[in-house]
């Protein structure tokens, strides 16, 4: 009986603000820029809605990882998210069917919307330039060519990219890569924390499979890192490290809600 009442109460409170409204306000909420009443409504919705709470947690983690970096390094704040956004668009072109609600509300999708609205107009210009750089990468994803592993090296940088990196407005390929690894590692740490909380609930078979696979990825990450320490110009290892870190993040993310 009590459970029933609690559920009714939850539903009532939740209906004061629906999930869409709540998720739209989360970024402003995290910046403490909502009026008191709206802020309270958001807070009570978050207390009762696991899905929106998860979105909020994700946002907070990303904002946190951005704040940890020096201000100059935040620019462009959303290059990785933008990459994902564009890559999602490409995938949706590949997939003619309807996308699931889950896919549309993907982690990076949310981040992109927020980071973008939070970026000032000055940042916007730089973000656009960065998106141009990103498109170079995307084009390589759709059209793998011999240039795939060399496209981000100094040799193949366009004149405008070179100029931008000279005046400090854009990263050199190595800097961009290092920043991306930092972002990936921050995300991995975040998902790993969640996994540590969940893993007690898995059965032994699941835990063993997870550990074996994580170990395998870590060995690959170790190999690429060693090569890159010896030869920072080894773009192939750079690409592979990027890919392995993505695999690790995806594995952790997949198991964070098991």
């Amino acid at each position: 009986m009590r459970v029933l009442m609690q559920n009714t109460l939850k539903r009532e409170l939740r209906t004061k603000m629906n999930c869409g409204e709540c998720q739209k306000k989360i970024s402003v909420f995290l910046d403490n820029e909502l009026d008191e009443i709206t802020s309270a409504t958001v807070r009570s919705h978050l207390a009762l809605c696991a899905e929106c709470a998860k979105v909020c947690e994700d946002f907070a983690a990303i904002l946190e990882s951005c704040r940890l970096e020096k201000p100059s390094e935040i620019l462009p704040p959303n290059s990785q998210a933008l990459w994902c956004r564009i890559s999602n668009t490409i995938e949706s072109e590949i997939n003619p069917g309807p996308k699931s609600a889950e896919v549309q509300k993907s982690w990076f999708g949310r981040v992109w919307q927020v980071s973008f609205s939070q970026a000032g107009s000055a940042v916007l210009g730089i973000a656009l330039i960065s998106s141009l750089l990103t498109v170079v990468g995307i084009r390589n994803y759709i059209e793998p060519t011999a240039e795939d592993f060399t496209s981000r090296t100094d040799a193949s940088q366009t004149t405008i990219e070179k100029v931008l990196s000279k005046v400090g407005l854009a990263d050199t390929p190595q800097e961009a890569r290092m920043r991306r690894f930092q972002e990936q590692r921050a995300a991995i740490e975040y998902w790993n924390n969640r996994v540590q909380q969940r893993r007690v609930q898995w059965d032994n078979k699941m835990r063993d499979a997870f550990d074996r696979n994580l170990n395998e990825i870590d060995q690959a990450v170790g190999e690429y890192t060693t090569i890159l320490q010896q030869d920072p110009q080894d773009d192939l290892s750079g690409e592979m490290l990027d890919s392995a870190l993505n695999e690790k993040m995806n594995l952790l993310r997949a198991f964070s809600d098991l």
Binding site: E143, A146, F149, E216, I217, L236, S237, M240, S243
Partner: peptide, 27 residues
């Protein structure tokens, strides 16, 4: 077909290259 990175990667074209094929096997 070209070998890159001391044989770690093979990049190239077969036929007129009308589709894309990306294969990665870390280990």
């Amino acid at each position: 077909m070209n070998l890159l990175g001391n044989g770690r990667s093979v990049v190239g074209r077969f036929g007129n290259g009308s589709s894309t094929l990306t294969i990665t096997n870390h280990r």
